[in-house]
C-alpha cells in the first residue's frame, strides 16, 4: 500500500509511473495471494483444499522419497495419519534444505514441516512446534578404525586438519560450529550420498547426522571401510515435532490433540517403531522442555 502512494507521488515521468504502477500492482496481488484465510482458521482451509503441503528432506528413515516418487519415512507417515484423522485427506511433500524449511514455512510455501527438524529454543521462537515425535542422538561417520580418534565435536575442533561434513542449516552444522570447529572446516554437504562419497574420497574426515540416518546410509552404501561412532559424546538427544507457522496455532493445537490420542492408543508406536525410532523417548519429554533450554 505504502508502495503505491509513493509511486503515484514520485511518478512524474510517464514510463516511471507505469513501472511503479506495475510494481505496486504486483505487490498488491502477491499480498492478496499470501493473505491467510483468518476467518476460517487454517484447519478448515486445509480440509477444503483436501491436502496439506509439507516440507521434507530426503534423509531416511526420517523422510524418504521412494524411487517411484511416493513419500515415506517416519515423519511424513505420522503427519499423513494425523492429517487424515483431522479430515485432511493427504499430504503433498516437497523436498527442501533444512535451513530453508523455516523461511519457506513463514513464506507460506508449506503448511507444515515434517522432516526431523529438531526442536531447539531458537527454532521454537520462529515456529509453532507440535509435541515431540521423533527422537534421536547424533552420530559421526568416519573411516574404518576411526583414524583421527573422534568421539565428540570438540575432538574435531581440536585437530587443525580435521574437516567435518554436515547438512546445511542442520543441527549437526550448528553443533560443530558451537564446539569450536572453524567455519572453513565445516563442509556443507548437499545430501547423504554426497556426504558418504566425500568421506570415501577423503574430502572430509567425518560426516555427522543423527544415528538412525547414518545407520541407514551405511547400510545402503555397503562399504566395509566406513565406521559409525554413536552417540557423539556431549551432544544432546534431540526430538523433532511437526512445525507450523506461529499464526496457525489452531492447526498446531488440533494436531497435538490427535497426536496425544495416537500416542495413548499405541498407533503412534506402530508407525514409528518399524523405522527404528523409540515412541517411549518421544513420550518421555515435552515441547516445553525441549524449547525451554
Amino acid at each position: 500500500m505504502n508502495f503505491m502512494t509513493t509511486g503515484m507521488r514520485v511518478g512524474s515521468g510517464k514510463s516511471l509511473r507505469i513501472t511503479l504502477g506495475a510494481l505496486a500492482a504486483l505487490a498488491l496481488s502477491s499480498s492478496f495471494m499470501s493473505a491467510p484465510a483468518v476467518a476460517d482458521g487454517k484447519l478448515e482451509e486445509l480440509k477444503k483444499q483436501g491436502f496439506a503441503r509439507v516440507a521434507i528432506a530426503n534423509e531416511p528413515p526420517y523422510t524418504e522419497v521412494k524411487p517411484d516418487g511416493t513419500v515415506s519415512g517416519a515423519a511424513p507417515d505420522v503427519a499423513r495419519e494425523v492429517f487424515k484423522r483431522l479430515g485432511v485427506g493427504d499430504i503433498v511433500a516437497s523436498i527442501s534444505e533444512y535451513g530453508a524449511m523455516i523461511p519457506g514455512l513463514q513464506a507460506g510455501r508449506f503448511d507444515a514441516v515434517t522432516a526431523g527438524l529438531f526442536m531447539k529454543p531458537e527454532r521454537c521462537k520462529a515456529v509453532a512446534y507440535s509435541e515431540p515425535i521423533l527422537c534421536d542422538a547424533e552420530a559421526l561417520l568416519v573411516k574404518k578404525g576411526n583414524p583421527m580418534g573422534f568421539a565428540s565435536y570438540k575432538d574435531i575442533a581440536d585437530n587443525p586438519k580435521a574437516r567435518i561434513g554436515a547438512p546445511g542449516g542442520g543441527t549437526e552444522e550448528k553443533l560443530a560450529l558451537q564446539a569450536g570447529v572453524p567455519r572453513d572446516r565445516v563442509i556443507v554437504v548437499p545430501d547423504g550420498q554426497s556426504g558418504v562419497k566425500m568421506l570415501q574420497d577423503g574430502r572430509i574426515d567425518a560426516y555427522s547426522l543423527p544415528v538412525l540416518s547414518i545407520n541407514d546410509l551405511v547400510k545402503k552404501a555397503n562399504d566395509p571401510d566406513l565406521a559409525v561412532i554413536a552417540p557423539v559424546k556431549g551432544a544432546p538427544v534431540y526430538c523433532d515435532g511437526a512445525a507450523f507457522r506461529k499464526q496457525d496455532a489452531d492447526l498446531r493445537d488440533a494436531y497435538d490433540k490427535v497426536l496425544a490420542e495416537m500416542k495413548a492408543s499405541g498407533d503412534f508406536a506402530k508407525i514409528i517403531e518399524p523405522y527404528g525410532f523409540s515412541a517411549a523417548a518421544a513420550m518421555s519429554t515435552t515441547r516445553d522442555k525441549l524449547c525451554g533450554g
Binding site: Y98, G168, G169
Partner: peptide
C-alpha cells in the same frame, strides 16, 4: 557453491539458514 566452495552465494545461504532470514 555446488561443490562446497564457500563463495559469496554459499556464505549467504549459510547465514540465511542459521537465522531463518533470506
Amino acid at each position: 557453491s555446488a561443490i562446497t566452495v564457500l563463495e559469496l552465494m554459499n556464505q549467504a545461504r549459510s547465514v540465511a539458514n542459521f537465522n531463518y532470514r533470506y
